[in-house]
Nucleic acid binder design. Structure first.
Lengths: 127, 127
DNA sequence: TTACATAATGTTATTTTATAACAATAAACT
DNA sequence: AGTTTATTGTTATAAAATAACATTATGTAA
């Protein structure tokens, strides 16, 4: 269990407290009072947090969320559902999907390291 | 079967001829001799081509590829394998995955419109 | 402790990716 | 023909990400 550096902790806290995915520049503007002044400081923290599996990047939105799956310390299998109406993003932690897709990748002859899956549609509330 | 406008055709042709995913500004620099001069012209064509299912965006790379699946004219289910060594991107058209994931989305209570799946690892050649 | 290596931070400037806004044409419809 | 709608052209700007380099902190080994 790796401990976070000062900047990593600051960036993680704000992502973890948020109910929605945060963009890098939103994070930046929210941590400037804590002494983080420039984009590279944020991006470096984000990169490390992703490596550790503490956060994930939602590629289709260029935004970041805290990992909901406590056991996931290296994020090699991520899946999200994204509501196109309310923009809600939910992490899907379904071991069946994970097994199914891992298995598929192996059969396809690929030496698989990770995958990312993003579902788009309407969530329960919005449909 | 929708016909393409002039700019859409130009942009599609260059993506379709390419053996690798192309970035928007690479496309732009390659079509300037054909009269397309500015980013919005490229991005507008890209947006329409995506809507039609003629191309897909590789979200993790901000790059665009022609759809390999002739039957796919609305791209509601896309999957790619991405080699982290040679950068090769291959579209996966596997109806089993598609059925499996569609089914999963419905069970999860989501009104699902589309998904995008990206595998990362080493391709057959590179592993 | 000191010396060295490695990781993290601070800072400025720039690159890359994407869109806003508005004017001008072209195509489709009645 | 006249009207609506889609597409194009153009300029400027916004948003997202990184390059490059100086500085400070942390870990480690003699």
């Amino acid at each position: 269990m790796q401990t976070l550096t000062r900047n990593q902790q600051i960036v993680f806290d704000i992502i973890n407290k948020s109910s929605e995915p945060l963009k890098a520049y939103t994070i930046l503007s929210n941590v400037q009072k804590k002494g983080i002044k420039a984009p590279p400081q944020v991006y470096r923290a984000l990169d490390k947090l992703i490596e550790m599996g503490k956060i994930h990047k939602i590629e289709s939105k260029n935004a970041f969320v805290a990992c909901q799956n406590s056991s996931c310390n290296v994020s090699k299998a991520t899946a999200f559902s994204i509501c196109e109406s309310c923009e809600e993003v939910t992490e899907i932690s379904n071991s069946k999907i994970s097994k199914y897709l891992s298995n598929f990748a192996e059969k396809a002859g690929m030496e698989y390291k990770k995958y990312n899956l993003e579902f788009f549609g309407l969530c329960k509330k919005c449909k």
